[in-house]
Computed example of a mutant assay.
Amino acid sequence: MISIKGLSKVFQTKDQEVTAVDNLDLTIEKGEIFGVIGYSGAGKSTFIRLLNRLEDPSAGSVVIDDRDVASLKKKELRLARQDIGMIFQHFNLLWSRTVHDNIAFPLEVAGVAKKERDQRVEELIELVGLAGRGQSYPSQLSGGQKQRVGIARALANKPKVLLCDEATSALDPETTDSILDLLVDINQKLNLTIVLITHEMHVIRKICHQVAVMEGGKIVEQGDVLDVFLHPQKKVTKRFVDQVMGDPEKENSLNLIHDTYKSDSILKLHFVGENTNQALISDISRRFNIDVNILHGKITQTQKGAYGTLFVQFSGEQSEIENVVGYIQSTTVEVEVNPSA
C-alpha cells in the first residue's frame, strides 16, 4: 500500500544544514494501523508531512497505491491528496463555519454537487458520533468533538490513507481513548490504512498493529507492536515501553529491588496472550520447596493480545531455584533471572 525508500529531508538554516528525516525505508500494508513514535525532534512530524507532500523530500520516494507522491506535478498532487486524509493536533477547523460546512469544505473544493455533498456530510456526522451537531460552530464544541469534526472532514473524499499528526496529544486521557476507539472503528469499517505519529506509547499500545521508533531522523526499531513490547532493543524504545508498563524509573526500581533482596533470586516473567491468565505462581508454590514474593507486576492490552510483566523474589536452596527457572522455561512464559535495566 505504502512503500517508502531512501526518504530524506534536509532543512537549510542560516548557519547549517539540519537533517530531519534521514534515508528512511518503510513498508505499510493496506488496512494497517501503523504507528510512528518518537520524542520531540525525532523527525516524525516532518516524516508524516512528506507522505502527502506538505513538505517536499530532499531525496527518496513515497509510493502510495503504485503512485510516487514525491514526483507528482502540482495538478496531479492536488488529485492525489484526495486519497490522503489528514488530521492535526490542533484541529485546524474553520471557525466561521458550522460542523456541517467544515466537513463539506473538501467536497466543495473537489467540485462535488451540493445534494451529494450534503448526503456525504450527514453520513460522516453519523459515523463520527456527532448526530445533531451539524449546525454547531467549533467554539460550541469540546476538544474531542472538534477532533471528530477533523476526522470527518479528513474522510470526506473517501481517502485510502488517513494521516494522524499527534491527533490526541491536546486531549485529556478519557477523550483520547474515545478518539482512539473511533479510529479503530473507522479502520475496521472502511479498511482504511492509518499512519499515526505520537510521542505516547499508550496510543501505540491501544490501536496500532505495527510501530516504528524514530530517533535523530532515523527509524531505530520497528515491528509488530506486541513484539516490540516484549523485546525492545534500543534504549529509547525501552523508555517508551516503560511509559505504559508503569515504571518510568525502571533502572532505579531494579537497583532498589536488588539492594533489598540481594541474597535471593529476582525473576522477571513475561506473559503474552492467553498466558496472562496462567496460574503460574501458584503452580510453582505447589511444585517446589521455595518461598515466593511478588514484587511488582502489570498487564496491558495491545491489538495483538495481552502483555504482562511480573517481578518475583524466590527464596530457598539455589538448586531448587534453578529447578524453578527450568520449569518456567519449559512453558511459554519468558523469564529473566536477576534482570538489569
Rank of each mutant, 00 (worst) to 15 (best):
I2F: 06
K9I: 01
V10M: 07
T13E: 12
Q16D: 11
E17M: 14
E17T: 09
T19Y: 15
D25I: 04
E32W: 02
V36P: 10
G38H: 03
G43K: 08
K44A: 06
F47L: 15
I48K: 11
P57G: 03
A59W: 08
D65P: 03
D66Q: 12
L72D: 08
K73D: 09
K74H: 14
E76T: 03
L79M: 15
Q89E: 10
R97S: 10
N102P: 13
K114V: 14
K115S: 11
E116W: 05
E116M: 12
V121A: 05
E123R: 14
L124M: 13
L127E: 11
V128P: 13
G134C: 07
P138K: 03
L141Y: 13
G143D: 04
K146F: 02
I151V: 15
A156T: 07
A156K: 01
E174H: 14
T175Y: 02
T176Y: 00
I179M: 03
I179V: 12
L183I: 00
L183N: 00
K189L: 08
K189M: 05
I194K: 08
I197H: 03
M201I: 01
R205Q: 11
K206D: 00
K206P: 00
K206A: 00
K206T: 00
Q210P: 03
E215Y: 09
L226Y: 02
V228C: 09
L230N: 13
H231G: 02
K234F: 10
T237C: 02
F240N: 03
F240I: 02
Q243W: 05
G246E: 01
P248L: 02
E249Y: 04
L254K: 02
N255V: 12
L256Y: 12
L256P: 11
H258N: 04
D264G: 07
L269E: 07
V272A: 04
V272W: 03
T276H: 05
Q278V: 10
I281G: 01
S282P: 03
I284D: 06
I284A: 08
R286P: 01
Q303G: 04
Q303W: 11
Q303A: 13
T309H: 04
V312G: 04
Q313A: 10
E322F: 13
E322D: 15
V324Y: 08
G326A: 10
T332E: 15
V337D: 09
A341V: 07
A341F: 15
